[in-house]
């Protein structure tokens, strides 16, 4: 496969937890922006950024909503960093059945950070604009990446199977399954 050069825009929100004062302005303005019509209401419970805020444990951790997952994870981890212990879901971005964050409180539909996709375009996400403590900062950079054409997902999956079982077995299985499926 032939590789080619292409320009890619990378948007990063840098989160400096040491600078967070736990004010939750990010949650307020995020939920306000995503209200319909825009800014017509606010509700931190709908926010796509959530601050874990536990002053007595000195925890201040803003986390952005990521992908939806249908199942909760089996094993969970607890992080201890500089003597501070972070809960099992603290760093996780998933909208998942095991917690209420990143879901619409009334419908349970998953929420995901879209970097304030909006018309007109908002260059700097609102949570960053409203974070005067500068715990959240925004960086945009252009990277020239050498990108090999990505193999199709099916190709990648089959290759992985062949790596494990050999092409003959995979081919047999495919023939058999295709016959069953097609009958």
């Amino acid at each position: 496969m032939k590789s080619e050069k292409r320009k890619k825009v990378v948007k990063t929100i840098r989160i400096d937890v040491d600078k967070c004062n736990g004010c939750r302005a990010c949650e307020v303005i995020c939920s306000a922006l995503h209200a319909k019509p825009k800014y017509s209401s606010n509700n931190p419970a709908r926010s796509r950024i959530r601050v874990t805020r536990d002053p007595l444990s000195n925890l201040y951790l803003p986390v952005y909503a990521g992908d939806y997952t249908a199942a909760e994870c089996a094993g969970r981890d607890r992080y201890v960093i500089d003597g501070k212990e972070y809960g099992e879901c603290a760093f996780c971005r998933a909208s998942c059945p095991s917690r209420e964050a990143f879901k619409e409180p009334d419908s349970d539909l998953p929420l995901k950070c879209d970097l304030c996709e909006s018309d007109p375009t908002i260059e700097v996400p609102m949570c960053v604009q409203w974070c005067l403590a500068e715990a959240l900062t925004f960086e945009v950079r252009e990277e020239e990446v050498e990108e090999e054409p990505k193999p199709e997902d099916v190709d990648a999956g089959l290759t992985a199977l062949a790596d494990r079982h050999g092409w003959d077995k995979v081919a047999d299985a495919l023939r058999r399954l295709a016959k069953d499926g097609g009958s």
Binding site: N21, C23, R24, A25, P55, L56, N58, Y60, K84, L132
Partner: peptide, 28 residues
């Protein structure tokens, strides 16, 4: 003083977490 703190939706940092023993914050 282990951290300066804000109230809800306020950019000011008028409060502070204070540690009087081994904990990182005993009160504010």
């Amino acid at each position: 003083r282990t951290r300066l703190l804000s109230c809800h939706n306020c950019p000011m940092k008028c409060g502070a977490a204070i540690s009087v023993d081994t904990r990182l914050c005993s009160y504010m």
